[in-house]
């Protein structure tokens, strides 16, 4: 399967590729490698241009986008209700950008549209890496902390736990990210259970393989 990944760093891209392959159960071919955004809200701002480019100028079948939630509103099941859109939820916003962009584009290169693979890491992708290694780190724990006004951990603490420093070099960051991504890729159920923001991405990806496409 040919796809593009929009991410904030080479470490994120490398790990996402492994996770996507784990969900799809097949190797993927990256079209237009090294698509980068400068964090939120730049991701949402550049997405329309990237979708348009991939649609008309490449043979990519889908685009994978994952952002950190930071301190934003976390996506919940309520947000998945038909017609529901939470303006402060990054997953809702990314989906809306995707929807609004692809519906304006005519078929091209033998396909109707670029497929969507969108996820949100709560509060940061390091939470995903710690899943299964530190039971205290879950999306539920973060939500409960947000509700209580006492976040259970900070982004900086998550970095420390994953990298052993909050100033990792890029090669070290890639090594650590890949190690945990490979662990999850063997069986993504734990990550999907503890991090619904990843489950959203996995659900999107599974629709890519349906014969009805």
């Amino acid at each position: 399967m040919k796809l593009a990944i929009l991410s904030e760093s080479p470490a994120d891209e490398a790990a996402l590729r492994v996770l996507v392959e784990g969900v799809l159960g097949e190797p993927v071919q990256i079209v237009q490698a090294a698509l980068r955004a400068r964090g939120w809200p730049s991701v949402a701002q550049v997405m329309p241009a990237i979708i348009r480019h991939l649609h008309f100028n490449t043979d990519a079948e889908g685009l994978v986008v994952v952002v950190d939630a930071d301190d934003s509103i976390v996506h919940t099941q309520t947000h998945d209700s038909p017609g529901y859109f939470h303006p402060q939820c990054r997953l809702c916003q990314l989906r809306a950008v995707f929807r609004q962009t692809v519906k304006k584009l005519p078929p091209a290169r033998g396909r109707e549209r670029i497929l969507r693979g969108v996820g949100v890491a709560v509060p940061a992708v390091e939470g995903w890496y710690l899943c299964g290694r530190d039971e205290r780190v879950t999306e539920t724990a973060w939500l409960e902390g947000q509700a209580a006004g006492r976040p259970p951990y900070t982004r900086r603490e998550l970095k420390w736990r994953v990298y052993g420093t909050d100033r990792p070099s890029l090669p070290h960051e890639i090594r650590c990210a890949l190690e945990d991504a490979h662990r999850h890729a063997r069986d993504t159920r734990h990550l999907e259970n503890d991090f619904p923001g990843f489950r959203s991405l996995a659900c999107d990806l599974r629709t890519w393989k349906r014969p009805s496409r």
């Binding site: 760093s9 980068r36 420093t165 909050d166 100033r167 990792p168 070099s169 890029l170």
Partner: peptide
Amino acid sequence: PRLLREVRDALYRLSYPESF
């Protein structure tokens, strides 16, 4: 701009040697 992370990290290597 995409190389600036590496430049920052090269300087971090000096100011936070234990991280490296």
